[in-house]
Design a protein around this nucleic acid. Structure first.
Length: 156
DNA sequence: CGCGTTTGACCAGCGC
DNA sequence: GCGCTGGTCAAACGCG
């Protein structure tokens, strides 16, 4: 298992993590060496139609973090703001439409920024991974905002 | 044979 | 109105 440490945990959905805001907070946290960008206040009032957005910055050699879900890469894009290409993954599990964006930190190529867009409407296909991933935040996957609830209530 | 991965092209949104 | 950037989808290829 590769080594990776959770350096920052960004809870998005309230307007933070914008281009400038993100850069400022990212650099700020890097300069101070502490995770100061943690915001949970936006979890319960995320904008309608946006769902929940979570960004993790972790130190890892590999850019893809296997969190137990099955991710299918569906695109790659090189953005001028980042010297490294950005990777787009989508949850290949049935009935799940969660997207994951992965890019290397612009200030530290040793760090990887994983941005989750959406919430899994199903349990981890490999839940036993949780037992091996004490570093992750399972609560982040468990919380499901009412605006992101899947319309699967007609299958009764 | 099936699934996943990779690259390119196309489309949409925003800024100038 | 045009140009640019970001994002997504599709087709083909390789590997399991």
């Amino acid at each position: 298992m590769p080594e990776f440490e959770l350096s920052d945990y960004l809870m998005l959905g309230d307007g933070i993590f914008d281009d400038d805001t993100y850069s400022s907070q990212s650099m700020a946290s890097l300069e101070k060496g502490s995770a100061a960008a943690t915001e949970f206040s936006g979890v319960g009032k995320n904008k309608p139609g946006v769902g929940v957005r979570v960004a993790f910055r972790m130190k890892s050699e590999m850019e893809v973090i296997d969190d137990g879900y099955k991710w299918r890469k569906y695109g790659k894009k090189s953005i001028k703001n980042c010297p490294n290409p950005r990777n787009y993954y989508k949850c290949s599990s049935g009935g799940c439409d969660v997207k994951k964006r992965i890019e290397r930190d612009i200030n530290d190529e040793s760090y990887v920024i994983t941005t989750y867009d959406g919430v899994h409407n199903h349990e981890t296909p490999s839940m036993l991974y949780y037992n091996q991933m004490p570093l992750m935040a399972p609560n982040a996957w468990t919380l499901q905002p009412p605006s992101s609830s899947p319309p699967s209530s007609s299958s009764t």
